[in-house]
């Protein structure tokens, strides 16, 4: 059986909120290392990869591998019933028909119990190859969100170029063009504002802003976001969570010109 108690229901709410517009029906794969999710969007352009490690829960118990097939719209409806300060416990039997969600108020004696009917999801599990990226950029998540939201007003696509000069986000549209360049930057007082650029080779790739704006819904989960780029391979956008947990998005580049 599964029993996973999360001190902050809000974390799970934010994760589901960040992915629900990309993917609809997902298996939450539970085993003794934690709860993982991997799902591609319908067009096979973007992939979500979530890992909530067992250390993120207290307690965490999962005796055997359980796949919880859940419709994220249904999950969102139930998670709306949790207050952000509530404690969330996920429970399921070994061969479950439902997943149970228990919300407990830390301050009052209220206990709310919900269940969601599970789905049989025939999910293709993809192997994500280890990649030595040509450029890795860590930057404030809010800054990345701002850039993507600003540029989508002008264009569908953004080119991300990383060179010795820094990282340049540029777009061209019908009304004109826009570009934002960031250089490596260390803020001693506010390290969450740092911009760190590690580059082994110059990279230049073009991506759909629609997807990037979608990924940025995860901005509330982490102060910093990490972008990993190599020429002609999918972009990795990573939000690190506490206890070595993470929410990652992969996006296929646009090709040709």
């Amino acid at each position: 059986m599964l029993e996973a108690r999360l001190e902050q229901a809000n974390l799970f709410k934010k994760v589901v909120d960040a992915i629900k517009d990309l993917v609809q029906d997902c298996n939450f794969d539970c085993n003794d290392s934690g709860i993982a999710l991997q799902a591609m969007d319908n067009s096979h352009v973007a992939l979500v990869s979530m890992m909530l490690r067992s250390e993120s829960f207290a307690p965490f118990r999962c005796d055997r591998n359980i796949a919880l097939g859940i419709n994220l719209t249904s999950l969102t409806k139930v998670l709306k019933c949790a207050q952000s300060d509530d404690i969330l416990t996920l429970k399921a039997e070994d061969a479950p028909d439902v997943v149970e969600l228990v919300f407990e108020s830390a301050e009052s004696d209220r206990i709310s119990e919900y269940s969601i009917k599970l789905m049989d999801i025939d999910q293709e599990h993809l192997g994500i190859p280890e990649t030595d990226y040509g450029a890795t950029i860590s930057m404030p998540a809010a800054e990345f969100q701002r850039i993507c939201r600003d540029l989508i007003a002008l264009s569908e696509s953004v080119s991300i170029e990383c060179s010795k000069e820094g990282v340049k986000f540029a777009c061209q549209g019908d009304i004109g063009s826009g570009a934002v360049t960031l250089r490596q930057h260390t803020n001693v007082d506010k390290p969450e504002m740092n911009v760190e650029i590690n580059m082994s080779e110059p990279v230049s790739l073009t991506f759909s802003l629609k997807y990037l704006v979608n990924f940025c819904k995860a901005s509330g989960l982490s102060n910093q976001v990490r972008l990993c780029l190599s020429n002609e391979v999918p972009l990795l956008v990573e939000y690190s969570l506490a206890n070595n947990s993470h929410l990652r998005f992969y996006l296929a580049p646009k090709i040709g010109d």
Binding site: S43, V45, H125, L126, G127, T206, P234, A252, K254, I255
Partner: peptide, 14 residues
Amino acid sequence: APRQGTLNRFFGKS
């Protein structure tokens, strides 16, 4: 205009 690629080429089934 550049066309959108997919992930199928990069991530194989495991």
